[in-house]
Design a protein around this nucleic acid. Structure first.
Lengths: 185, 185
DNA sequence: CTCCTGATGTCAGAAACTGACATCACATTA
DNA sequence: TAATGTGATGTCAGTTTCTGACATCAGGAG
């Protein structure tokens, strides 16, 4: 991250990173399949946290609540690392290849969530939909958390969920393609 | 696509593609910024179709309806190319780097949709949420369309929308974290 | 006919990545 | 203790992607 800050992502070569870490380029590629991967080492842990939380949730809880609660358990992962998260987000915003990788990781988490729900006897169709909605909420909340020092991640998760509920509720009323713009402004 | 079918994506070098097209590798990179991009030449047209459809929709129509109608206008783009679409999907499913690029393109379309909605005086928060939901629907519908020869793309779009409505409707009832699993199975 | 422009080719080179093999530290076990 | 095996790292050569600089060439405008 230091190197990326100094020289920018693309002007930092893998050889540079390896040298700074006291290693060889070859060794770098044994730890990270990609140059990009060096910025996604936490993805595995995040995924595990969520999947485990879903697996150990009470069976009676509705699926959406289960997933949402699982998202909240990830807060400690970032709690003390908001500065780092902000730097990372800045990098992502500047480099399409990093954004693509991020999308890939999130998509992967979505399928894991979906699988976990199906293990709880949620239908495949509902599971993927819930999983995708959950990831959308998480993305939105995380983005706002990075920028807003006043509230914590769970707060923003709650807010994003409320927003989604409001939108989907009004989408329901718009069913027969009439009834002018209630979702406006 | 021929080359990819024969040798596989990764064993097809850009030099191969260029040679087959009667060009130089250098020229290839003047048309496509990436090796990956050769499989995404249609993204620009798809985006334009959707954005234009949104821009020219009646002002009275609710935003979600506008976007959904815009998605339907893209059907002719693929109408006669289901075989090609299937081959492409197979490639995507086998190569993470291609899937990532696809996610990037779709995310980009989502922000374009959101911008188009905001130009129609939809709030930023609602616009991004609607855009993301729309892309989710599109992805799901497209996937099923590729596999199911019996129905056309608009049919699958309609089905995906119905499914989302059903899910969000029941999500609404689950607000106070009680009321056992109604969304199950 | 000349000049301009846009598309293409040629070339050299940086950087990302991979496979094969060597080496070294360390632990197990005879 | 010495032999042996294992896992991590280094070394090296090579392929592929991608870029910048410059040359060439064809066709249109004047």
């Amino acid at each position: 991250m230091e190197l990326f800050q100094q020289r920018g992502y693309e002007h930092t070569t893998v050889a540079d990173i390896a040298a700074k870490a006291g290693l060889t380029e070859r060794t770098f590629f044994r730890y990270f399949s990609d140059k990009r991967e060096v910025l996604f080492s936490g993805a595995k842990a995040l995924e595990k946290l969520i999947v485990d939380a879903i697996a150990s949730a009470p069976v009676a809880l509705p699926p959406f609540e289960v997933v949402f609660a699982a998202l909240k358990t990830t807060a400690p992962l970032f709690e003390s690392r908001r500065a780092h998260a902000r730097q990372r987000q800045a990098l992502l915003s500047q480099h399409a290849e990093l954004r693509e990788r991020e999308l890939g990781k999130l998509a992967n988490i979505a399928v894991r969530i979906s699988e976990s729900l199906q293990a709880r006897h949620v239908s495949a169709a509902n599971a993927t939909l819930i999983a995708e909605a959950a990831v959308a909420i998480y993305r939105s909340a995380f983005e706002r958390w990075v920028a807003d020092t006043k509230h914590d991640l769970p707060h923003h998760l709650q807010a994003a969920l409320a927003q989604l509920r409001k939108l989907t509720a009004s989408a329901k009323t718009a069913t027969p393609a009439t009834k002018a713009a209630r979702t406006r402004h």
